[in-house]
């Protein structure tokens, strides 16, 4: 990651976060790699007021899935992933790319293997629905922040997502 001789380490505008890839949000409105988990929110197929809060922990691949009202997901059978967790994983791969997701979850995939589940050895994990749902609400709250005309000089460090070359 060098550009014209200036080392990555010595560049003020060195890119750190790869821009996320566009994906459809209707089914899985929120995905993040945070707090040592792949976590997110999956819209219920039957009830527009309900969402499922799902997560997979990094390292030991612990699964958790609950509704936003904190009821356990009926489809999650211990270490067998429900459709919500599968949709979450699929959305994460679409958004971040397979390699970033496998690195974060510490998943070893055989050369040429493109299915994340081939490398996941799920366990059960404690319910994290409250934390993940709070994170989703913070995420949504950004859309309600008023715009600003402050000159924000520090944004010179943050060029807009670069055009694909």
């Amino acid at each position: 990651m060098t550009s014209d001789g200036a080392a990555y380490e010595r560049r003020s505008a060195a890119p750190v976060i790869a821009p996320v890839r566009p994906r459809k949000l209707a089914k899985v409105p929120f995905v993040e790699l945070a707090e040592g988990r792949l976590q997110g929110v999956v819209s219920s197929g039957s009830d527009i007021e309900r969402v499922y809060v799902s997560s997979i922990t990094a390292g030991d691949h612990g699964l958790s899935c609950n509704t936003n009202n904190n009821r356990p997901c009926g489809g999650l059978g211990g270490t067998y992933p429900c459709n919500h967790i599968r949709a979450l994983a699929e959305a994460a791969v679409a958004q971040y790319g397979l390699s970033r997701v496998t690195r974060y979850l510490r998943v070893e995939l055989a050369e040429g293997e493109e299915n994340l589940w081939a490398g996941l050895h799920p366990t059960t994990a404690p319910n994290r629905a409250a934390e993940v749902f709070a994170s989703f609400l913070r995420h949504l709250a950004y859309l309600e922040l008023p715009p600003t005309t402050d000159p924000l000089p520090e944004l010179q460090w943050f060029p807009a997502a670069e055009v694909v070359r």
Binding site: P22, L140, L143, T148, T149, L152, A161
Partner: peptide
């Protein structure tokens, strides 16, 4: 001179659709 207008967004809004976050201007 310079003019700055900024809108809050989330990571899944990027590319040309990010302009939608500046609808107030």
């Amino acid at each position: 001179v310079r003019v700055s207008v900024a809108g809050a967004k989330v990571d899944t809004i990027s590319g040309p659709s990010a302009w939608r976050m500046l609808a107030a201007f």
